[in-house]
């Protein structure tokens, strides 16, 4: 197959109010787990830092007072961080926690509308049963020793359903996402690469026979584009060699220049076909009629 299945299955079309379909790439389970771990590490580090700072500040005062202050910081800090760290960041304009930001993820509403504060709160409140319930079961069982092995296994299996929920649905939704109507997508940005076919002098340097240009279709053209943009010398030499052999063209020492010119010529030929409604999909020559023809 042309594309690996995993890559296509996390892509969702999304239609804007203007009626244009935009593709969204959902975050995978592994990335999201990694983002969560980063956030947890940050969270714990912040708590420790706060306590140390408070401890230093309180060193001069009576022992009871400093203990009380640290106690309050821990109680309140832990509560606020545990419940509102994620929400506070996701309500912001970027829609992502620091961990998600590092991994290039953000939270959006599934219907494409505004992400509301309520939705963000719900998706994070649900983390109670997803993460902390299994954790507390583990903690309790560890504290009690192996009192009831069967119960432990049962409890872990039951809570595991919540923890592993994202693996059981196509959209990688957590239970929180399910109720909040949100999903987590990649924040993508790519640069507009240079115009490979833009050099007007290309036709003067090398010309190709129609037979040489009829070898390939759109799919091969775009693969060629990838090869050129990646700029790997070995790959370019290999591809140039294959094209020269198939088209019966003499060996050309400058593989990159040859390939660029061939790309420009092939692009022109296929695009001309496109203008009259013939879209040649690939080298096997399937032609699909396009509906819109613009000059």
């Amino acid at each position: 197959m042309r594309k690996p299945k995993a890559a296509t299955s996390l892509r969702r079309p999304f239609v804007t109010p203007e009626g244009v379909s935009l593709p969204l790439d959902l975050g995978g389970a592994g990335e999201r787990a990694a983002a969560f771990l980063i956030d947890v590490i940050l969270l714990v580090a912040m708590l420790i830092a706060m306590s140390v700072v408070l401890g230093l500040m309180m060193r001069g005062t009576a022992k009871g007072e400093s203990e009380e202050a640290i106690g309050i910081v821990w109680l309140l800090g832990f509560f606020l961080l545990r419940n509102f760290w994620f929400a506070a960041f996701e309500i912001g304009r970027r829609g992502c926690t620091p961990g998600k930001r590092l991994l290039g993820l953000r939270v959006i509403a599934r219907n494409g509308a505004r992400l509301t504060g309520g939705a963000v709160i719900v998706r994070n409140a649900m983390r109670e049963i997803e993460i902390f319930l299994p954790l507390s079961f583990l903690g309790v069982q560890a504290a009690n020793g192996l009192a009831d092995r069967f119960l432990t296994i049962f409890a872990l299996a039951w809570t595991g359903i919540f923890l592993l929920f994202p693996l059981f649905n196509r959209d990688r939704l957590r239970i929180g996402d399910f109720f909040a109507g949100t999903w987590v997508v990649h924040t993508m940005r790519s640069d507009l690469g240079s115009d490979l076919a833009g050099d007007p002098a290309a036709a003067l340097r090398r010309s190709f026979t129609p037979a040489a240009l009829d070898l390939y279709g759109v799919f091969e053209l775009q693969t060629l584009e990838n090869v050129l943009r990646r700029g790997d010398g070995d790959a370019i030499a290999t591809v140039a060699g294959v094209i020269q052999r198939k088209a019966g063209i003499a060996y050309d020492p400058d593989a990159r220049a040859f390939l660029t010119d061939y790309y420009a010529a092939l692009c022109l030929r296929l695009e001309t076909g496109l203008m009259v409604g013939k879209r040649r999909q690939d080298k096997h020559g399937r032609i699909s009629k396009t509906h819109v023809v613009r000059g």
């Binding site: 935009l22 829609g95 993508m188 690469g193 775009q222 692009c267 496109l274």
Partner: peptide, 25 residues
């Protein structure tokens, strides 16, 4: 047929969409 062009425009539009429609109030 320039794939870099369509991909760039898709991603630019998506980013702009979320800044215009998708952000919280």
């Amino acid at each position: 047929l320039d794939r870099a062009l369509t991909r760039y425009l898709e991603q630019l539009c998506t980013r702009a969409y979320f800044q215009i429609y998708g952000v919280p109030g």
